[in-house]
Amino acid sequence: MDQFTFIFDILLPALMQGLVITLQLIVCSAPFGLVLGIGVAAGRQYGGPILSRICKMFVLLIKGTPLLLLLFILYFGLPSIGITLTAFTAAVIGFILCNGAYNSEYIRGALLSIKDGQMIAAQALGMTRAQAIRNVILPQALRRAIPGLSNEFIYLIKYSSLAYMITVVELSGAGKNVATKYFIYTETFMVVGIVYLVLVTITTVAVSILEKHVSVPGTSRSTSAAQM
């Protein structure tokens, strides 16, 4: 069997199946990771002393623990205390926790960069704190957080491969299975790698389009300045 047949007749069809699982993992995790990130950041910034401490602790613990260990805890550990999750669910929960913790750091940074006057002006118009946060602070903060959040999204794409370590046969796992079966390793993992590169590159392009789409005169300038 030549390389060409191997890649196109055997490897790519198998990878396609894995890719579908990878995409499912990402699609199930990313939105909740964003919501969790917003919640944790808002809790740290606007919550009372107890809530903000809990949020801070959460970020510290999740960032300090390797994601792979977190997945082991969720998939292999939880059954010992009576909670059994499917591998897919465990992976998604792990990704949400991890993604949320890192996202919250960018969002918090962006929240801190919004000047006090915005909140004061909103309250002076009769908005409650919650209304002010939702309608005035967050729309600005999220725009500023886009570069960081998109970085985390790219990390999510790459680290979704760790789901394979808890038996979810996603893209990397599909590649590994084919490689082991045919003893063709270098080519297989190069192709797998290229698929990830394509995903990452598409995301990068999509993010820059999104950024342009939601950009507001004046604010994007301050974003790039803050990034420096």
Partner: peptide, 23 residues
């Protein structure tokens, strides 16, 4: 830089451990 940042660490480890080094 593009290559090494774009690939998951797991895939890089597999690539080098099973593929490149023996290769």
């Amino acid at each position: 830089v593009w290559f090494f940042r774009g690939l998951p660490i797991l895939v890089l480890l597999f690539l080098f451990w099973f593929g490149i080094f023996p290769g």
